[in-house]
Design a protein around this nucleic acid. Structure first.
Length: 147
DNA sequence: GCCAACGTTGGC
DNA sequence: GCCAACGTTGGC
């Protein structure tokens, strides 16, 4: 899962421990959150739009999906006029801090790894903020991170 | 339903 | 700031 560290970083998550992951406004990303994730699943925390971009650590899914409260909040940049409480359009999950990697893994490093060739986030044109990771990719990255 | 125009993401 | 690679919108 990607976040811009200027907005919300893994250090912020460590401080808060549990935080709602809000503001997903892409249907594919939403569907992935809603349909493919369960409480306890481990997640890689990716820092995007920073120098250098890369994976900073891990967290876990800490709640079932629920309607993203920001879609109802007038004035929020995530407000969605066409969403209603009866039929919400966007969803959030809570995430819980797990670990900050001993070694931050820049995107450039990830690209060099043979074992990660097929990883979704490394494919051309992938800019979804939520993408799937296989168990072996996850293990490989955790090993690279030294945690 | 098509598709041009526009908006967004995010690495570089 | 540029631009590739999308996604979304809206006229037709």
């Amino acid at each position: 899962m990607k976040s811009e560290p200027d907005e919300f970083s893994i250090q912020d998550l460590k401080r808060k421990n549990v935080e709602p992951w809000t503001g997903i406004r892409n249907y594919q990303a939403r569907n992935f959150l809603r349909d493919e994730m369960s409480v306890g699943d481990e997640v890689l925390f990716y820092h995007s739009s920073t120098k250098p971009p890369g994976i900073a650590g891990t967290m876990t899914i800490a709640s079932a999906p629920y309607p993203d409260p920001l879609q109802f909040k007038k004035g929020s940049k995530y407000f969605d006029e066409s969403a209603s409480k009866e039929s919400p359009r966007w969803i959030s999950v809570d995430v819980q801090f797990q670990a900050i990697f001993a070694t931050y893994i820049p995107l450039e490093m990830l690209k060099k790894e043979k074992a990660l060739e097929g990883m979704k986030i490394l494919q051309k044109g992938t800019r979804l903020s939520v993408t799937p990771v296989t168990a072996s990719e996850f293990k490989h990255i955790v090993k690279m991170g030294g945690k």
